[in-house]
Amino acid sequence: MSNIPPTPAGLRGAVDLSSLVNRGTASPPAPASAAAAAPGGPGGAAAGVSDALVVPSLVVDVTDQTFQDVIELSMQVPVIVDLWAEWCGPCKQLSPVLERLAQEYDGRIVLAKVDVDANPQLTQAFQAQSIPTVAAVIGGRPLGLFVGALPEAEVRDVIEQVLQAAAQNGIAGRVQVADGAPDADAAAEPEPEPLPPHHQAAYDAIEQGDYTTAIAEYRTAIAQDPHDRMAVAGLAQVSLLDRLQGATADELRAAAAAAPTDPAAQLGVADLDISGGHVEDAFGRLLDVFPTVHGAEREAVRARLVEYFELVGADDPRVVAARRRLATLLY
């Protein structure tokens, strides 16, 4: 697939969860016979009721101690993992979308929710440097999916990719919610706190694919409150989406290879790197080109690095190291 989706949504490799997989401290999921369902859309043919793996719910909360359940469950159906926090505004936008889609796919996926504040081992294992972070586990193998709150249509596309990858690995089952078990549709979920007006306007614009308006709304929020870190992070995310819209990986990489000292070409492929989770590659590329440029080009490279720092998170050791190197180059 040559077109880059306007999100960091590629299936970008395995995460090492061996320290959690081998814990062996959690009980296995509810016993049931093997699942075997033909792949298809959300309304596709289901396995017979007697063949379906029975689970308490299609949306489950998991912890460092109970993640073994997810590993076992992923041998039957792909599990989508939502790493979130109570204080995270974008998480409150994305989580309801994921929960709704988990119901819509009617047992072909299960959504596992991880509170990053309460589960540091899983947070580290999934390399969740900023949140929301969404991953999948297929046949016990974790895959990074995307970072940030995306429109529902794009989230659906990612889930379709996950289902295709799962089917290619022989994971094409379906689970059934146990009779009488509380499911996400039946549970009374508290209403999320409303977003500040400009944040909500930005999110609505992103849903419509109108990144220009979203950028303007986040900039207004920052002008009104320069300490609004959520707006700063949101601006960095939507700016990346806007720049990648309509681009192709082949074009960006070819341009960068043909002009290794051209800052515009390197900025373009650095966006591609950061969107795919290749943080150190993106930092290194721009830090290498920084000493070779001057004036407006130098400022553009510096500004892009600062934007990436917001995306990845100030406390990330890769950001700390990159900031230190940038300061050395500046002074």
Rank of each mutant, 00 (worst) to 15 (best):
G284W: 05
T63N: 05
L195P: 04
I131M: 08
D228H: 05
A112K: 02
L267D: 09
V320D: 03
V77K: 14
N22S: 06
A153Y: 10
A256F: 09
Q176M: 13
Q164G: 12
E297P: 15
Q76P: 02
R253D: 12
A47T: 10
A26E: 12
L241C: 08
A265Q: 03
V62N: 03
A188H: 07
P29L: 12
E191H: 04
V62T: 08
S18F: 04
S50G: 12
Y308T: 04
H198T: 03
N169V: 03
V62M: 06
D61H: 03
V59H: 01
V137M: 14
D315H: 07
Q168P: 06
E280W: 03
C91E: 01
E152N: 03
F126G: 13
Y105D: 12
L83W: 11
V320I: 15
V319W: 01
V116A: 11
A296P: 15
F283H: 11
L143F: 14
E154G: 03
A270R: 12
A258L: 07
P317R: 01
A314V: 02
L163E: 04
Q121N: 13
G295C: 11
D316R: 00
F67M: 10
P132G: 07
A256W: 11
P5I: 08
A184K: 10
M230T: 12
G277W: 05
L111C: 03
L329N: 15
D179W: 07
V155S: 07
V55C: 09
A36Q: 14
Q200Y: 03
D16A: 09
Q65I: 01
E99G: 02
A14R: 11
T220Y: 00
A85S: 09
F283T: 05
Y331P: 04
M75G: 15
L11Q: 06
A296I: 15
A231M: 04
P132C: 13
L73I: 10
V54Y: 08
R298F: 13
E72Y: 15
R325N: 14
D228Y: 04
Q200W: 03
D69M: 14
T25I: 13
A264Q: 13
A205Y: 00
G284R: 05
A321Q: 10
A47I: 06
P291K: 11
E152H: 05
G10P: 06
D82M: 00
A34I: 12
A257F: 03
Y203T: 01
Q266F: 15
V312I: 06
A256V: 05
Q224P: 04
L267F: 08
V279M: 01
I222T: 05
L311H: 04
L101T: 02
D82A: 00
E299C: 13
E86L: 08
L111E: 03
D271L: 08
A205I: 02
G41Q: 12
A303Y: 14
G139N: 08
F146Y: 10
R23C: 01
A255Y: 01
A322C: 06
G13S: 07
Q129M: 10
L163T: 02
L235W: 00
R324W: 12
V158N: 06
D117P: 02
A118T: 00
K92I: 07
I274P: 01
L98F: 00
G276Q: 08
A167R: 05
